[in-house]
């Protein structure tokens, strides 16, 4: 366990330069790319000269770039940036929640939590459909099921998420009205930040059910690519471990099949976890599209609304937040990796 601690510390140390790099890249997007960042930050073409001038002062846009960088980061990390569109501080919109939501209604949950919940649902689909499907197709190698999984993986990565979304909306909403597309119920109190769990904790079961009903289809659409990919990876990883010498030796030791499976699965988990981490990035990236298709007010949608309304501060906040979550997810993947495989702890 001491090694594990050392591994985590070492991993955290490499985390820092990447984090600095990420903030630099965000800075480049924010300040160097629009022809006139002050105008962009003030809200684009419609902004009045006074506002632009104020922004120029506030963000030190007449100073050298490193001063600008430091001030931007300071403002970002102290939640001191206001969206010219929603007039909320961007981290209130995104994380902390506001009394004054975009549509006027207040929300206890920042946009981030809505996306998080959607992503977690999609992740569940990937794990609980993809992995068993992969194991089955490995055990039934070269069967019709196996080729079906192979095709699913190929079709999955080729399917435009938005198209799949509309196809399912057409079937389940337009043709047979079995899903809801409007409204987004909230539990009365924010506890963990994940709405379904909060609702269940509060005993508001009907709200929990509404949330699940609302998210089941979008999460499936978001996870669809990943299901095939994970099934494929699981199949190949499992086949490889299933033919490994230690499984053969396990048979020779007289282990039961369920135990052999356990050994094979745990070993196969090493590549699977890596790909799951990558898939998590894919899910986050897919959020803007899925949220647009299904009208879910998550942070992807928030970014797109920001772009359409020339709300650059909100866009920058969203980009940074997405990167931070993804980095955190990768950190978790690496630590899980070390937990599974004692060899990487060194």
């Amino acid at each position: 366990m001491a090694e594990l601690k050392r591994f985590i510390v070492r991993r955290l140390v490499t985390f820092i330069p990447t984090l600095i790099g990420v903030t630099l890249l965000v800075f480049i997007i924010a300040n160097l790319i629009p022809a006139d960042p002050a105008r962009a930050w003030a809200g684009g073409e419609k902004a009045s000269p006074e506002v632009i001038e104020r922004i120029r002062e506030e963000y030190h846009l007449n100073d050298p770039w490193y001063v600008q960088y430091v001030f931007l980061m300071k403002k970002l990390f102290t939640n001191d940036i206001v969206s010219p569109r929603t007039h909320n501080k961007i981290w209130d919109d995104l994380i902390f929640g506001t009394s004054q939501g975009v549509a006027g209604a207040g929300t206890k949950y920042g946009r981030f939590f809505i996306t998080l919940q959607l992503t977690l649902f999609a992740f569940l689909y990937i794990v609980f459909i993809g992995i068993p499907l992969g194991v089955l197709s490995a055990l039934k190698k070269d069967s019709p099921l196996d080729s079906a999984v192979r095709s699913l993986a190929l079709v999955g990565v080729s399917t435009p998420v938005f198209w799949l979304g509309y196809l399912l909306i057409y079937i389940f909403f337009v043709r047979f009205r079995v899903i809801e597309l409007a409204g987004f119920p909230e539990p009365t109190q924010r506890i963990t930040g994940i709405m379904v769990i909060d609702a269940l904790l509060l005993g508001e079961n009907d709200i929990a059910i509404q949330i699940i009903n609302r998210l089941a289809l979008p999460a499936f659409v978001l996870g669809f690519i990943g299901i095939g990919v994970i099934a494929r990876i699981t199949r190949n990883a499992f086949l490889e471990t299933w033919n490994a010498d230690y499984i053969e030796f396990g048979k020779a030791r007289g282990l039961r099949k369920s135990r052999l499976m356990r050994h094979a699965l745990k070993n196969a988990l090493v590549p699977i976890v890596t790909v799951l981490g990558l898939q998590f990035g894919g899910l986050l990236g897919g959020a803007p599209i899925t949220e647009t298709v299904f009208g879910i007010p998550g942070m992807g949608r928030y970014m797109i609304e920001a772009i359409r309304n020339f709300d650059y501060p909100a866009l920058i906040g969203g980009v940074l937040l997405f990167a931070l979550i993804y980095m955190l997810a990768n950190l978790i993947v690496d630590i899980t990796y070390a937990l599974i495989d004692p060899r990487v702890r060194y």
């Binding site: 230690y246 039961r256 050994h263 060899r343």
Partner: peptide, 23 residues
């Protein structure tokens, strides 16, 4: 299965590969 490893046991050629690295 009850005989393998209990009454008739094996020692494999390559010990490095015969042991599960994760346990």
């Amino acid at each position: 299965r009850e005989i393998r490893g209990k009454e008739i046991a094996y020692i494999f050629q390559d010990p490095a590969a015969a042991l599960d690295p994760l346990y």
